[in-house]
């Protein structure tokens, strides 16, 4: 076995890194750019949601409940129900948004939610036009 002096000294070149600015972000102060199309939390445009429960059918985790809404925003909503997602079960595969006939259910870039009670993770998608 031969160990060259060069191989023993070359690793020291890594120290030049201290003259560079650190690459990590100081998280709470600096946030990374949000990406359009990120699979984050759900949003649902209630003015177009037809309450068809396709999203509930396709969800393999049985994470979606269809719950009644008080007032109908959309006359085409035949069932008067909108989806609510159990974020303890959701795997953010976005199949529910793929099968949504009016494309009202979408995922947004927002993706941070901390809570100390696991039973609170029933998420009512925000009503946002997409």
């Amino acid at each position: 076995m031969k160990f060259e002096l060069k191989n023993s000294l070359a690793p020291l070149s890594a120290l030049s890194k201290i003259f560079e600015h650190p690459q990590t972000l100081c998280y709470p102060e600096v946030k990374s750019e949000t990406v359009s199309g990120y699979r984050g939390f759900h949003i649902n445009d209630l003015s177009t949601c037809i309450g068809c429960a396709n999203c509930q059918d396709v969800c393999m985790n049985e994470a979606i409940d269809m719950i009644a809404i008080d007032k109908d925003k959309n006359p085409k909503n035949n069932s008067g129900c909108i989806p609510r997602i159990d974020y303890g079960r959701c795997c953010w595969c976005s199949l529910c948004t793929d099968v949504c006939p009016p494309d009202s259910l979408k995922l947004e870039s927002e993706c941070i939610w901390a809570d100390d009670d696991a039973n609170r993770f029933l998420y009512q998608p925000k009503d946002k036009p997409c």
Binding site: G51, C52, M66, A68, D86, A118, N119
Partner: peptide
């Protein structure tokens, strides 16, 4: 099942009712 999911409705039933 997680508590609080009892208000899940069957959409077909709801459409019929409506």
């Amino acid at each position: 099942f997680r508590e609080g999911r009892e208000d899940n409705l069957d959409v077909k039933e709801e459409i019929k009712k409506r």
